[in-house]
Design a protein around this nucleic acid. Sequence first.
DNA 1: GTAACTGCAAATGGTTTGCATGCGG
DNA 2: CCGCATGCAAACCATTTGCAGTTAC
Lengths: 151, 151
Amino acid sequence: MSEISSHKEALKHSGLKNTKQRNSILNILEKSTQPLTADQIYVALINEKTAINLSTIYRVLNTLAEKNLIIKSSSVSDNKTLFELNSLEHKHHLVCVECKKIIMVDECPFEEYEKKLKEKMGFTILGHKLEIYGICNNCQKKNEKNNKPTV
Amino acid sequence: MSEISSHKEALKHSGLKNTKQRNSILNILEKSTQPLTADQIYVALINEKTAINLSTIYRVLNTLAEKNLIIKSSSVSDNKTLFELNSLEHKHHLVCVECKKIIMVDECPFEEYEKKLKEKMGFTILGHKLEIYGICNNCQKKNEKNNKPTV
DNA sequence: GTAACTGCAAATGGTTTGCATGCGG
DNA sequence: CCGCATGCAAACCATTTGCAGTTAC
């Protein structure tokens, strides 16, 4: 597993000690295709027999977020904090307001828009988060069946 | 204040009773240029001598959000839920990761991008939220003074 | 060896909820 | 007058924190 050593590098580069817990957490995040809550990470680690304390997870996540190794966001529906690896290629979310499903899309419409903002307002962009709310294909079909009016 | 009656209409249209508390909350949100936390609304109401209970505010906000009269979001930095009026014209946020300032911008780069998504994935867009993280003009200058390296 | 890190348990704080009362339609 | 809304207090639960023991470097 070459990923582990890359985590080691990343931690070192940020002036953080290379501990078993931090590596485990980074591994879980790396494997996930979705942002995870602290608790989800906890369960994942327990499942793979990795002993760890929940408060350690919170502390590690906050530290990693401070160093910009991971990205903190938060889910509106259940008000929990989400964490994901800060990979360079970013993803965006489609959130279905009915079934709460989250669909990832990888196209990003505005590298250029960011440039414009920088020139106009002197705002240096580090990243962005785009969430699109709507109704997914499935729920739409379901609604048509039930004759449910569109708002 | 013609806004009050418009709130009355909006409430009625959603099958909600027109109460003093709901109107007061909607008024506060209407006056604000930024999304507010439940607590901020509470303080604002107390300041203008409007007696209300914090749990009522939460209940009203959640009800209004369910009816899509207001929009729920959440701030990453302090993990609180934010609420704003669901006005048709939408705004976007620039969030400075250093001073936590929120700057509103009104340009939206992708009505067209939404169209594309709809065609491609059958996803009906109701709205979107764009948050751009970075460092604002001020913090940048401050950093230059202090010789702080840019990561 | 020393500062950084972790585990544990208790505290914190935003949000929700049960129940009795009040008020809108 | 009926049922939705509100106030109040207590519960809830995600997250944080103090402290003692441990580990990385």
